[in-house]
Amino acid sequence: MKPSLPAKLNTGFAWVLLVVLIAPALVAIPVSLTPKTFLSFPTDELSLQYYRELFSSPEWLSSFWQSSVIGLLSTLLATSIGTLCAIGLWRVSSRAAEVVRSVLLLPLVIPPIIAAMAFSRLYVPLGLIDSYTGLILAHTVLSAPLVLITVSASLAGFDPRLEQASRNLGASNWVTMRRVIIPGIKPGILAGAVFAFISSWDEIVVTLFLSKFSVYTLPRRMWNGIRENTDPTVAAAAVVLMAVTLVAFAIWALASRRAKSAE
């Protein structure tokens, strides 16, 4: 049966919508190439001066470094505890486990502004405001639920008899986990790690409340630039921020395609 004209129009409109969902974000690219001294679109010529500015300014460079350190360490933590937790809940698999799971997913749905208040109230007496430790822990709490979701999805397709077989053959819990379960759910772990990294790399609201002077992540510095709305360097920063997100996303997309074709 050939699709009818209305069906084709429907699909066409959906494609337009999808492109519109992405296109506006790309506006940062031409703005970042402007030769003028204020935020504007380039008219006659393009200039890379704001990328030079971005990569030579000690402030922006330190923000890159801090965002990367916080992103990578919180990803490491979130992926470890999220994966362990997913395996644990999968083994228990009872009503209680489902209740615990929905409690652990709460950081995904509770508004970040409330999380920001809660963290900042907790961190002041602990001296964790404006510290790496504070931000890494906060980002870990916010991103580990993503790992829990992706790893649980992988476990749903994992045959529990493989675990029994491994134990019957005399493998310990630890060996079973390392040699049997984890290799079987690798795609879920990788997806979780990628999403955890992106969510920390982009995080702004909680960071706004927890950082003052010494820890100033890339989104935090961009936030100032956006509020002042004058210096085109912020456009270059936006492009780089987005590029890193897209690279992380591409890693996930390629890996999941490979995993699917291996099945």
Binding site: L84, G88, R91, M117, R121
Partner: peptide, 28 residues
């Protein structure tokens, strides 16, 4: 069930750093 041991680190982190402090906000 020994599976709960694996859940513990995440549960403690969310309880101590997130849910507890949110209860504190409600208290405030």
């Amino acid at each position: 069930n020994s599976g709960w041991l694996l859940v513990l680190p995440f549960l403690l982190l969310v309880g101590g750093l997130f849910l507890g402090p949110i209860l504190n906000v409600l208290w405030i």
